[in-house]
Lab assay of single mutants.
Amino acid sequence: MADQLTEEQIAEFKEAFSLFDKDGDGTITTKELGTVMRSLGQNPTEAELQDMINEVDADGNGTIDFPEFLTMMARKMKDTDSEEEIREAFRVFDKDGNGYISAAELRHVMTNLGEKLTDEEVDEMIREADIDGDGQVNYEEFVQMMTAK
């Protein structure tokens, strides 16, 4: 299944994987998964984290390695993001709930994920998604960005 991913997608997933893999040992533990999910405003229980890991832990060693992570991402993409997942993601970014993602809100979430971005990089990300040019990202623009192939 992971063989249907483009090189660009694999590179993006590698970057995402390293955000989860806090200690850089090449595997994601339940603790690391929990840290990232909490930084995104989720509050999973230990059991939920274990279930999430077990779902993709092909070799049964209790952690997720990069090939397992790729399989999980490929699977998720095949079920292409349901509207509800996209709306949920939008809410994570839209901290003040005004229906727009500002540069400050984007920077806040990315920083929580451990991504240190310059102001230019954040502005560039907003510009790429900002179709109507108002300097922020509304829900429609967010959907376009998330579903762009």
Results as ranks from 00 to 15, higher is better:
A2L: 09
A2Y: 05
A2W: 03
D3L: 08
D3K: 13
Q4E: 00
L5A: 05
L5E: 07
L5S: 14
L5H: 02
L5T: 14
L5F: 00
T6G: 06
T6P: 13
E7N: 01
E7Y: 05
E7I: 15
E8Q: 01
Q9I: 07
Q9G: 08
A11V: 13
E12Y: 02
E12C: 15
E12I: 02
E12P: 04
F13K: 00
F13A: 06
F13P: 00
F13H: 01
F13Y: 13
K14E: 12
K14G: 00
E15G: 11
E15F: 01
E15K: 08
E15W: 05
A16I: 14
A16C: 03
F17L: 12
F17W: 02
F17G: 02
F17A: 00
S18R: 14
S18Y: 09
S18V: 08
S18A: 11
L19V: 14
L19R: 04
F20L: 12
F20S: 10
D21G: 11
D21N: 09
D21H: 07
D21F: 14
D21V: 13
K22H: 03
K22P: 00
K22D: 03
K22E: 12
D23F: 01
D25F: 15
D25E: 07
D25K: 03
G26I: 15
G26F: 08
G26V: 10
G26T: 05
T27Y: 03
I28E: 02
I28W: 04
T30A: 13
T30R: 15
T30G: 06
K31S: 06
K31Q: 12
K31C: 00
E32W: 08
E32M: 03
E32I: 07
L33I: 09
L33N: 00
L33C: 00
G34E: 11
G34C: 12
T35K: 01
T35F: 09
T35M: 02
V36H: 00
M37K: 10
M37L: 10
M37T: 11
L40V: 14
G41A: 12
P44G: 02
T45D: 00
T45W: 07
E46A: 09
E46M: 15
E46Q: 13
A47C: 05
A47N: 05
A47M: 15
E48A: 04
E48V: 10
E48K: 07
E48G: 13
L49W: 09
L49S: 09
L49N: 03
Q50V: 03
Q50N: 08
M52Q: 01
M52E: 06
M52R: 07
I53W: 05
I53P: 12
I53M: 15
I53H: 15
N54Q: 06
N54L: 00
E55C: 04
V56G: 13
V56A: 11
V56I: 05
D57Q: 08
D57Y: 10
D57P: 01
A58M: 03
A58C: 01
A58V: 13
D59S: 08
G60C: 12
N61M: 03
N61R: 03
G62M: 09
G62V: 09
G62R: 13
G62T: 01
T63K: 08
T63L: 06
T63Y: 00
I64G: 08
I64P: 15
D65T: 15
D65M: 09
F66N: 05
F66W: 02
F66P: 02
F66L: 13
F66C: 13
P67A: 10
P67V: 10
P67H: 09
E68I: 03
E68Q: 04
E68H: 04
E68S: 08
F69C: 02
F69P: 04
F69W: 03
F69A: 05
F69Y: 08
L70D: 02
L70W: 12
L70Y: 09
L70N: 15
T71Y: 02
T71P: 13
T71M: 15
T71H: 06
M72Q: 15
M72K: 06
M73L: 09
M73I: 11
A74Y: 15
A74Q: 05
A74I: 01
A74M: 06
A74K: 05
R75S: 10
R75G: 13
R75M: 14
K76Y: 15
K76W: 14
K76R: 12
K78T: 09
D79I: 06
D79K: 08
D79A: 13
T80K: 09
T80L: 12
T80A: 13
D81F: 06
D81H: 00
S82C: 15
E83Y: 04
E83P: 02
E84L: 08
E84H: 02
E84C: 05
E84S: 01
E85D: 07
E85F: 02
E85N: 10
I86E: 05
R87K: 07
A89P: 00
A89V: 09
F90P: 03
F90E: 12
R91I: 03
R91M: 10
V92F: 13
V92T: 14
F93W: 08
F93Y: 10
F93L: 11
D94M: 03
D94W: 02
K95T: 05
K95H: 14
D96I: 02
G97N: 09
G97K: 15
G97D: 11
G97A: 14
N98R: 10
N98S: 09
N98V: 03
N98F: 10
N98Q: 03
G99M: 05
G99A: 05
G99W: 08
Y100C: 10
Y100L: 07
Y100Q: 15
Y100T: 02
Y100W: 02
I101K: 00
S102A: 05
S102P: 07
S102L: 08
A103F: 02
A103Q: 06
A104S: 10
A104R: 09
A104I: 01
A104Y: 05
A104E: 01
E105R: 05
E105K: 06
L106T: 04
R107E: 06
R107Y: 01
R107C: 10
R107P: 02
H108G: 01
V109Y: 04
V109A: 12
M110A: 12
M110N: 03
M110V: 10
T111C: 07
N112S: 13
L113H: 02
L113R: 01
L113F: 11
G114Y: 04
G114M: 07
E115S: 05
E115R: 00
E115N: 07
E115G: 10
E115Q: 07
K116R: 12
K116S: 07
L117T: 03
T118L: 08
T118S: 11
D119H: 08
D119V: 08
D119K: 09
D119W: 07
D119G: 11
E120G: 12
E120W: 10
E120P: 15
E121M: 01
E121T: 01
E121V: 08
V122G: 12
V122A: 12
V122H: 06
V122S: 15
D123N: 12
D123H: 04
E124Q: 00
E124S: 09
E124G: 11
M125E: 03
M125T: 09
I126F: 09
I126Q: 02
I126S: 13
R127G: 11
R127S: 07
R127N: 11
R127Y: 04
R127Q: 07
E128K: 08
A129G: 11
A129M: 08
D130K: 01
D130Y: 08
D130V: 11
D130I: 01
D130T: 02
I131R: 13
D132Y: 08
D132S: 15
D132W: 04
G133S: 02
G133F: 04
G133L: 03
G133R: 10
D134E: 13
D134K: 00
D134A: 05
G135K: 06
G135L: 01
G135T: 03
G135P: 08
Q136F: 02
Q136P: 07
Q136W: 01
Q136R: 13
V137M: 15
N138S: 13
Y139C: 09
Y139H: 11
Y139A: 01
Y139R: 02
Y139I: 03
F142I: 02
V143A: 12
V143T: 00
V143I: 11
Q144M: 01
Q144C: 06
Q144N: 03
M146F: 15
M146L: 08
T147S: 12
T147I: 13
T147C: 06
A148D: 06
A148V: 12
K149N: 11
K149E: 11
